[in-house]
């Protein structure tokens, strides 16, 4: 088919399109996260001592850093869905920020059991459950971001997919953080990182598949 024939076909009976609105997309993702949080709280999964713990340095660090990472991750993912955006610098900066808050948590936030062994502090059986819960909780947001990515035109689908994974993983971790009963920063750093990294890897592998502009 010649170019002119293709152009004739494309321009014949051209329906108006609804322009993409990044703010609306961000609102959709935020609403989904809020709905998930409401469901988790609604079924009574919030840790029982939340009222007394909410002002502690540990909880401020945990919820604060996850909220910041989730907000920046979602913004970065939605911004990357246009061909003019490069998510490379954003992803790098977000990773640096994640490492910074992690190191800060390990150094500055006191943990309750100074005498406990490493195995006791890490509690692998519960830790794996925590990581799996983060993966499950991140699924709805990852599905929504994947759908938005497919509707968009990312310049680098692999980087966009990774940003989607980072956003969904940190949002899933934030929702899970209100249920998690462990108060040790080391436990949070290890198992939450494994949960978020699993989501990022899955997003990076799955979302760009069969994606074509």
């Amino acid at each position: 088919m010649s170019n002119s024939l293709l152009i004739d076909r494309l321009s014949a009976e051209l329906p108006p399109v609804r322009r993409r609105n990044p703010a609306r997309e961000l609102a959709v993702v935020a609403s989904l996260g809020a709905l998930e949080l409401a469901l988790v709280l609604g079924v009574g999964l919030m840790r029982p001592d939340m009222a007394s713990m909410i002002g502690s340095p540990y909880m401020i660090w945990k919820l604060g850093s996850l909220a910041i990472l989730a907000l920046l991750g979602c913004t970065l993912a939605v911004r990357s869905f246009v061909p003019t955006a490069s998510s490379r610098k954003g992803v790098t900066m977000l990773m640096v920020l994640a490492v910074a808050v992690t190191v800060f948590g390990l150094i500055a936030v006191p943990h309750p059991s100074e005498a406990a062994s490493l195995a006791e502090r890490l509690a692998p059986a519960q830790g794996l459950l925590c990581a799996a819960s983060i993966v499950v909780l991140s699924m709805p947001v990852m599905a929504a971001l994947g759908w938005l990515m497919r509707r968009g035109a990312p310049g680098n689908p692999r980087k966009s997919a990774f940003a989607c994974g980072l956003a969904a993983g940190t949002l899933g971790a934030l929702i899970f953080a209100v249920c998690c009963r462990f108060n040790d920063p080391l436990y949070i750093v290890v198992w939450y990182s494994i949960g978020v990294a699993t989501v990022c890897t899955a997003a990076r592998a799955l979302l760009p598949r069969r994606f074509r502009l």
Binding site: L6, L10, R19, R20, R212, L213
Partner: peptide, 20 residues
């Protein structure tokens, strides 16, 4: 050309067309 057609809703009128 097909990609431009399929993704024309992603063009932001506030931005220049060339980079898109």
């Amino acid at each position: 050309l097909l990609a431009v057609h399929r993704r024309r809703h992603t063009y932001d009128p506030a931005q220049p067309f060339g980079p898109w």
